[in-house]
Amino acid sequence: MKRLLSLVMISSLLVLSLAGCGQSYDLYVFNWGQYIDKSIIKEFEEETGYKVLYDEFEENEDMYAKIKSGAAIYDVICPSDYMVEQMIQEGLLQKLNYDNIPNAKNIGAQYFEQAKAYDPGNEYSIPNYWGTVGIIYNKNMVNEPIDSWSAIFDEKYKGNILMINSIRDGLGIALKYLGYSLNSQNEKEIKEATDLLKKQKALVQGYFVDQIRDKMIGNEAAIAVNYSGEAKMMIDENPDLAYVVPKEGSNIWSDNWVITSNAVNVEAAEAWINFLCRPDIALKNFEEIGYSTPNEAAHALIEDEETRNNEIYFPGEEITKRCESFSYLGVEGNKMYQKAWTEVKAY
């Protein structure tokens, strides 16, 4: 009796959990959290008739694990630069047919040029958002012009520095400050960067990602490392803040639309990318989310002149020239970076 009952219970549990999967969709989209104006999804559905299932991820690594293991099948996803490269190498993506994505012409040529660092022929990916990593500082708490990463390693600001809690960004900054590539796989260079970051640990208030915004707005620290899009939002809230991309160079990042190799509905996926590359849609997205758009046609449509010419959103070539994209480090390279970062955090 007991066994029978538990069988019934378990099977009813299973049936319940499967019941949710009955509905079918034409397009499965996997994007970063808070990375789209949600009304755009509806607009797309109305215009094209494709029914969209829209899911969000928090980290490239989460997304990668799901795609790689085959636990979920998505048609179109939005990974970052180095992740695009990794996925191309592992055969997880398929080549785009630009004939079906005519709006790709709206994306600035220089962004496609930068993308060649991780997608050499621009065959697999179309940039969606981009930005830089730099220093955001409080002009009232810092009384010298800041233009170098040396500021975040300066004894003067002890206890007033917020460091970014991210393996690639954290080590990348140290490598750049030392004059190396932020994709370095040279053990000696990484060791040097690790030692520098260990020494820095006594100076920093802590390692954060999302909390940096609140802390800088609340005058909790003088200097922080953060992304350009975030920086702009902080400055809008607290005019004492300023953002700079240090002279030693920094990271220039981009998130890109790609189509997976096992996509079921390629046509719908192409329509999706094409739709998002349309100037009015890209503009709407930019205004809602606040990350720089690579869409030149959308850029030209920005009404507010101050925003259109904003150096943080759209840094000139002299800034982007000294920045470097992340590339995929390979399994061994990733391990080397993880080990180095753990050493810093555990120091």
């Binding site: 690594e61 694990a65 208030q205």
Partner: peptide, 20 residues
Amino acid sequence: GGGKVHLIGNVIEQEFKFKY
């Protein structure tokens, strides 16, 4: 702790979340 204090719970969390 602002990510400065590394407890064993954080070590395990990192294995799952960042190092996969």
